[in-house]
């Protein structure tokens, strides 16, 4: 009765890892996430949705795919959470692959649909619940999982360890002085007004962006600093993976860096 057409896309993070799943593992993880970890919002949102489709026009995926109904926000819930619930959590690896595709690649958690739904149902949140299930099962797009792993190993999104970070900022400061006399990229200045925390890529292959910020801060005369220690990266891809343990660690590190530097404000990029 329902038609869901998707161009096949292969992703080792999804395809290969899904092969390793066992039925018990799948059922256990879904039960854990839906019954132990999630509470009021999940139940109330799922029980309230009247299936009216008024959220559809909110979604850029739905609009971009020429109003294909399988891309509407509520359809994403229908193809994931309702599916698991209706089948009493006993779903196969193919279903998990579909859940992963929908929750990671067909919804970017923008929350626009909450502004369209007459009940304010938060479908973005429901998709993060689906991501959590896929994340715990290890069925995650490879690129995203790689960034999550990088957070675990280097405390930054793009495999930039702390010594590389300091090194990069120091040579950027050298270059900055070609443009601004005595320009500074000040590390670890306690009590500064602002802590600037860059996107990980500003320490990797988009260093010109960090230079731009440094120029602005120097010319504007802002009292700013950055941590030379872990916690400098403002991004958190573990959140998108559904790896809440790493997400919590990254977030805590970031705020603790600001507290250690006793700054008044954090400015993040992007």
């Amino acid at each position: 009765m329902i038609k869901v057409e998707r161009r096949p896309v292969s992703d080792p993070g999804i395809d290969e890892n899904a092969k390793k799943l066992t039925p018990e593992q799948i059922e256990g993880v879904i039960r854990h996430v839906l019954e132990k970890e999630s509470a009021g919002r999940l139940r109330t949102f799922v029980e309230t949705c009247i299936h009216c489709g008024l959220c559809s026009d909110a979604c850029h995926y739905y609009l971009a795919y020429k109003r294909d109904p399988s891309y509407s926000p509520v359809a994403k819930v229908r193809l994931t959470l309702w599916d698991m619930i209706r089948r009493k959590y006993r779903v196969d690896a193919e279903s998990i692959k579909m859940y992963a595709r929908i929750s990671y690649a067909e919804c970017n958690i923008c929350k626009r649909c909450s502004m369209y739904c007459p009940f304010g149902i938060d479908i973005a949140y429901l998709m993060t619940v689906v991501r959590r299930i896929c994340g715990l099962l290890g069925v995650v797009p490879q690129y995203l999982q790689d960034q999550g792993n990088s957070h675990m190993y280097t405390y930054s999104q793009s495999w930039v360890p702390q010594d590389d970070w300091v090194d990069t900022a120091l040579w950027l400061e050298d270059e900055l002085r070609m443009d601004i006399r005595n320009g500074r990229i000040p590390f670890d200045k306690e009590g500064a007004e602002v802590m600037y925390s860059p996107h990980s890529l500003e320490a990797k292959f988009k260093t010109n962006l960090l230079t731009n910020i440094a120029k602005i801060m120097n010319v504007a005369g802002v009292d700013w600093t950055m941590p030379s220690f872990d916690g400098w990266d403002s991004t958190n891809q573990a959140m998108h993976v559904g790896d809440y343990e790493t997400m919590g660690m990254v977030e805590r590190m970031h705020f603790e860096a600001a507290m250690r530097l006793k700054v008044k404000k954090i400015i993040t990029s992007e």
Binding site: T48, I50, S114, G120
Partner: peptide
């Protein structure tokens, strides 16, 4: 049944309204 949106409406709206 989902007719209980009559009761839940007020609370889902309250939550989302507050979050936003």
């Amino acid at each position: 049944t989902r007719l209980n949106h009559m009761v839940y409406f007020w609370f889902t709206r309250a939550y989302t309204g507050s979050e936003f």
